[in-house]
Simulated scan of single mutants.
Amino acid sequence: MPGTRSGLAVLALADSRFPNGGHVHSGGVEEAAARGLITDVDHLREFLFGRLRSAGLAAAVFAAAAAHAATGGHADWLALDAELDARTPSPAQREASRAQGRGLLRAGKAAWQTRALSDLVSATGRPHHPLMLGVLIAASGAGAREAALVAGYHSVSGPSSAAVRLLGLDPFAVNAVLIELTDDLDDIADTASASAHLPPADLPAPGSPALDLLAEAHDHHHREEVRLFAS
Score class of each variant (00 low, 15 high):
residue 20 N to R: 12
residue 127 P to L: 06
residue 161 S to G: 14
residue 162 A to T: 02
residue 93 Q to H: 12
residue 14 A to V: 05
residue 30 E to C: 12
residue 68 H to T: 10
residue 17 R to H: 14
residue 146 E to S: 09
residue 132 M to S: 05
residue 72 G to V: 08
residue 137 I to C: 00
residue 29 V to S: 02
residue 24 V to H: 10
residue 226 V to C: 10
residue 91 P to M: 10
residue 87 R to C: 11
residue 212 D to R: 09
residue 178 L to S: 03
residue 118 S to R: 14
residue 55 A to G: 09
residue 161 S to L: 13
residue 191 T to A: 13
residue 216 E to R: 12
residue 96 A to N: 05
residue 53 R to P: 08
residue 225 E to C: 14
residue 202 D to R: 15
residue 23 H to F: 07
residue 106 R to T: 13
residue 193 S to V: 03
residue 139 A to I: 06
residue 208 S to I: 05
residue 207 G to Y: 07
residue 138 A to F: 02
residue 120 L to Y: 00
residue 218 H to L: 06
residue 3 G to L: 08
residue 212 D to Q: 11
residue 192 A to H: 02
residue 230 A to D: 08
residue 177 V to G: 01
residue 104 L to A: 10
residue 180 E to L: 07
residue 73 G to S: 11
residue 14 A to M: 07
residue 67 A to C: 07
residue 76 D to N: 13
residue 103 G to C: 11
residue 173 A to I: 02
residue 123 A to H: 02
residue 168 G to T: 04
residue 27 G to C: 04
residue 138 A to H: 03
residue 41 V to Q: 04
residue 171 P to A: 02
residue 137 I to M: 03
residue 73 G to K: 08
residue 107 A to Y: 02
residue 139 A to L: 08
residue 39 T to E: 14
residue 65 A to S: 15
residue 78 L to H: 14
residue 13 L to M: 15
residue 206 P to D: 14
residue 39 T to S: 15
residue 43 H to S: 13
residue 70 A to E: 01
residue 45 R to Q: 09
residue 53 R to C: 13
residue 22 G to Q: 07
residue 35 R to G: 12
residue 112 W to Y: 12
residue 209 P to A: 10
residue 145 R to C: 05
residue 48 L to F: 00
residue 31 E to V: 08
residue 30 E to W: 09
residue 54 S to L: 12
residue 1 M to C: 10
residue 71 T to N: 08
residue 104 L to I: 07
residue 181 L to I: 00
residue 43 H to I: 05
residue 17 R to N: 12
residue 24 V to T: 13
residue 57 L to A: 06
residue 20 N to G: 15
residue 37 L to W: 04
residue 136 L to T: 01
residue 53 R to W: 11
residue 27 G to S: 05
residue 226 V to N: 12
residue 179 I to G: 06
residue 213 L to N: 12
residue 213 L to R: 15
residue 38 I to Y: 00
residue 140 S to F: 00
residue 164 V to N: 00
residue 227 R to W: 09
residue 208 S to G: 10
residue 68 H to A: 12
residue 183 D to S: 12
residue 210 A to R: 14
